[in-house]
């Protein structure tokens, strides 16, 4: 396989937090130490779901300096492809699982004079690790956290207990909303904005702060595009000379791997660019879902990011 060695872990705690979110604790099977990481990093969890291997990225939320265990929180997505459902229904204490080395696509800019964090729902998790990292270095931060309701506010109590002055919580069902204009207005020069949450929230924060004159490089965001299910389709892999079927519950990348073809990847979320694949021939339409390719590249029909993007049509021939 491409990339770094995987890490074999054992599930040592499964902690339901509320109706939707459950926390999992992983410790290394060999009793050794896990790698340290930087706040904002994620790990890709491999799930053996019957015949299907699912690979879902989850932000690491534990203390980046704690090498004894990693923790993640998984929000159940009843509509999605099933990775989160598998975690909720089929994973229990004592299970062995395989996870990737930490990868950070949402790292702190350590030059920032202040870190302004904006979280929506389960998007809180990378901030939990970043806060631990910043606290150790006496960094200056402030968190604004929007949740649907008190009942679904994961880690609200923990955050407000430990950091009463730096944490602000907003409940949708009480019509509380982040006043972005005011908030960004009173930040000191050299502040960086970080946003993690639903796509709509990320787009709103990015658009609004750009309008307000914030430089692009001071706005950081992470959004995992959970690979969406879609219609099955057929692909010809020209280099390995194979014809494969992509099922509705798997990504194109997963189908390529299932056929025994080693395809590069890193984020599996349309963000890193690693899986970029050349299209040799096609008749049909691409369903591009990545953040990597430019609009004109999407329109060109020459490239596809198989970790998130799909295809509908008659023929698709890839350079793999």
């Amino acid at each position: 396989m491409s990339g770094a060695e995987k890490i074999a872990v054992r599930v040592t705690e499964v902690t339901p937090l509320n109706d939707l979110v459950t926390r999992f604790r992983f410790e290394p099977v060999d009793g050794g130490l896990l790698p340290t990481f930087s706040g904002g990093a994620h790990t890709v969890v491999e799930m053996q779901d019957g015949a299907i291997t699912r690979l879902n990225p989850y932000s690491l939320m534990s203390d980046p300096f704690d090498q004894s265990a990693y923790t993640i929180s998984v929000r159940r997505d009843d509509e999605g492809r099933g990775g989160s459902l598998f975690m909720h229904k089929s994973v229990s204490v004592g299970d062995e699982m395989v996870i990737s080395n930490p990868v950070n696509l949402f790292s702190l800019d350590l030059r920032a004079k202040k870190h302004l964090m904006i979280a929506g729902g389960i998007g809180i998790t990378p901030f939990l690790a970043q806060i631990k990292q910043l606290d150790r270095a006496h960094g200056n931060w402030e968190l604004h956290y929007a949740c649907r309701s008190q009942a679904l506010g994961s880690y609200v109590d923990y955050l407000t207990d430990t950091h009463p002055n730096d944490v602000n919580v907003y409940y949708d069902d009480q019509d509380q909303a982040i006043d972005l204009e005011n908030l960004t207005d009173r930040q000191p020069l050299g502040t960086h904005i970080y946003v993690c949450g639903p796509k709509g929230m990320i787009n709103w924060v990015r658009a609004k702060s750009t309008d307000l004159g914030w430089p692009r490089e001071a706005i950081h965001y992470e959004e995992f595009l959970a690979p969406q299910p879609g219609k099955p389709f057929e692909v010809k892999l020209a280099v390995s000379n194979k014809v494969i079927q992509v099922g509705e519950q798997e990504s194109l990348l997963e189908a390529i791997e299932r056929a025994g073809v080693d395809a590069p990847y890193l984020c599996r979320g349309g963000a890193c660019g690693m899986c970029e694949t050349r299209v040799i021939d096609y008749t049909g339409n691409f369903i591009h879902r990545d953040h990597w390719l430019e609009d004109d590249e999407h329109a060109s029909g020459e490239k596809i990011m198989p970790c998130v993007s799909r295809f509908e049509g008659k023929t698709l021939v890839l350079d793999r």
């Binding site: 770094a4 790698p35 990481f37 990737s100 080395n101 990868v103 890193c272 660019g273 690693m274």
Partner: peptide, 11 residues
């Protein structure tokens, strides 16, 4: 640069 940005821990 694309390659370097993607270099992972342990690799």
């Amino acid at each position: 640069l694309k390659f370097l940005l993607n270099i992972q821990q342990g690799a």
